[in-house]
Design a protein around this nucleic acid. Structure first.
Lengths: 244, 244
DNA sequence: CGAACGTTTGAGATGACTCAAGCGTTGTGG
DNA sequence: CCACAACGCTTGAGTCATCTCAAACGTTCG
């Protein structure tokens, strides 16, 4: 069941068995993509969307001047570019961080499946708006938090999302990003991210080492990052108690 | 015709006369809201969406610590919170900048109208994803540009959007924001915005005075703000030639 | 073994912030 | 109709967070 993890633990949007079957039936192909590969280039016309089955992907805006800003991270179970279905072409690029397994859903097949299934359509619509909600939280992060707060916020978010996907125990999880990736998420320089990580470690809030995060004091980390998981629309809050 | 301006000048998404009629028919009420009023508080359950007919609105995230980050600006002709239709409750607040005229579209009525109208549904879906594309561009702005670049980018975007709405001649337009509003969009302090505006004026790029922007050198301003209007999905590019 | 890449650390520069004060405008109530 | 409060704008001085540039180190992989 390819779509097994899709929209699990989301308030009122979980798929029925029938809907799961429909989406699985729309998959044309499952394939593997190497790590650090561009899957879709900004401006490309797209005729299928991609469900991430295993691995980590990111979406990013590249500037002619060479500036890069990550605008989204994706974990297993998420639709990476479902927004390409209504939009047809993308304003940003999409690539893998790790080696990834992805399921391809042609837009023709998707259209056929959605015909007459208004509930499922709304759930898919919702899932693209969830990404928008994350964009907003990311805006708050880079617009209003200091460097330590930004990284703390990112780690809290990834923990919550990975926990929902069954990929974090609420304490330790794989996050295969380089310090440069973190910098491109947080609007910082890689050097400064390095110093920030040391501060988080020395402050005994969390540890980041070779693509793996350990939360030492999750509540304090959440406080430091002004993190409130509400924007994730989860049914059950992350295990770690965020509110104090 | 309330929806007259909705999705005009968007590549391949303009409404047919029939669709326009359908949407207009779903409006339950048109009313006026005072300036500087909160229309929807974050976390509220919402059962209708709002088309902005006249005026300026903003969406923002407020933090318990008092930090505020604007995540969207809205101009006449835009659906301010159509995403509330699939999402049911919002992760952010919505308020007016100026006095506004808004059209209320109850979700029941909307649902009835969309039943069987897959094309219109996709256009509405698209319009919510357009907001997400703007979020991404805003992320690039605050994550990767310096203060002057951020304000320049904002002015370029607002010019392009207002031009599409028939509210900018490509040179001068109303933008009824305070310097504090601009700061809350750009992730800056109001004092620094003041200095940035002086720099833009003295560099003869643009002028901002009592809620009105005048572009003096639009091409140079766009360059300074690394502005590329592609993410707006416009059919016709803004009048000012952005590419040098 | 060497190249490429990611991480770590340092020193110095600087852009943006903080705090503080003064000015102009607007709206309002006495 | 004036006075004053509230608000937004402007400017200055000093501080600090983050950046830039540079170098060195570790690890991985061909």
């Amino acid at each position: 069941m390819i779509f097994d993890r899709f929209l699990t633990n989301r308030r009122g949007y979980e798929l029925t068995a029938e809907e799961l079957r429909l989406l699985d039936g729309a998959v044309s192909e499952v394939r593997t993509i190497d790590a650090r590969t561009t899957m879709i280039e900004a401006g490309e016309r797209v005729t299928s969307s991609t469900l991430l089955v295993r691995g980590f992907m990111s979406r990013y805006i590249d500037d002619p001047a060479g500036l890069r800003q990550l605008v989204a991270m994706h974990v297993a179970g998420e639709f990476v570019d479902l927004h390409a279905y209504p939009m047809r072409e993308l304003d940003h690029s999409i690539g893998t961080l790790t080696s990834c397994e992805v399921a391809i859903v042609p837009h023709d097949a998707l259209k056929a499946v959605l015909e007459g299934h208004e509930d499922l359509s709304r759930k898919l619509w919702f899932s693209t708006l969830l990404d928008a909600a994350l964009h907003r939280a990311w805006l708050f992060r880079v617009g209003r938090l200091d460097a330590v707060g930004r990284v703390a916020h990112l780690f809290c978010e990834m923990n919550a999302r990975l926990e929902s996907a069954g990929l974090s125990d609420g304490e330790t999880f794989q996050l295969p990003m380089t310090q440069t990736d973190i910098a491109e998420v947080c609007g910082l320089t890689p050097e400064h991210v390095n110093r920030v990580l040391r501060q988080l470690r020395e402050g005994e809030l969390c540890q980041f080492k070779s693509g793996s995060v350990t939360l030492i004091n999750p509540a304090a980390l959440a406080r430091r990052g002004h993190f409130d998981p509400n924007y994730l629309y989860l049914k059950t809050a992350p295990k770690a108690r965020w509110t104090n």
